[in-house]
Write a protein that binds this DNA or RNA. Structure first.
Lengths: 103, 103
DNA sequence: GCTTACAGTAAGTGATGGCTAACGCACAGG
DNA sequence: CCTGTGCGTTAGCCATCACTTACTGTAAGC
């Protein structure tokens, strides 16, 4: 289900450090070391976060020698997008059909 | 800034219990007690989560006697939507302008 | 006014999860 | 090969935060 992907992505973006990584990658692809050098946490921490982001479909990894280049992945973003839209559509449906019961 | 609202909303939806509340409210407005009766946690816990969701602009509260009816709020949802779109737009810009450097 | 129902608040506890330090691994260069 | 670099992994510590148990507050009904 694409739903599970959305939940993973939302959970992943719930962490401030992961959002920082996410925003950095929005400015362009980057290897892990360069990513870590711009942040307050150590490289292993970044590595762990990238693992979570990758499992959530928010980033992709491509090897280049010993380096791993990370870039944003549209799939995770679209999944969150869709999830939010579905919830809001449900809400409109629900309040629409109960309009006359609301007093 | 609308950005701060988005970050609050994403952080709020990072918690599974809050997502459960959020999804329940997507099926229609509900008072706190009814909300808590369908979940595994106690009513005070739900109350605390609703406070967070409210501050994130994801739900609104309307008093009805001693009852507080909660419903989804479009503002928080739109904020997350916009935040994701901006990041993806940035990513497209970045990779677009560095296409010829990528090899 | 007293009681009942419904909900927010406060304090204290427990567990999830993020962080670091140390280690192991693969690839490139000499 | 051997060294250096760039990353991922593990173990363990610690802090944040979600949860419960009281308690307080407010509105409605008798």
């Amino acid at each position: 289900m694409a739903n599970a992907q959305a939940l993973l992505a939302i959970t992943a973006l719930g962490d401030p450090t992961r959002r920082q990584i996410f925003e950095h990658l929005a400015h362009g692809p980057s290897p892990v070391g360069e990513l870590a050098s711009t942040m307050a946490v150590t490289r292993p921490a970044v590595s762990q976060h990238l693992r979570v982001l990758k499992e959530a479909g928010l980033v992709t990894e491509t090897a280049q020698g010993t380096r791993r280049i990370y870039r944003l992945d549209r799939r995770g973003i679209s999944a969150v997008h869709a999830w939010l839209d579905e919830r809001w559509a449900e809400a409109l449906n629900a309040t629409g059909s109960t309009l006359e019961q609301d007093f």
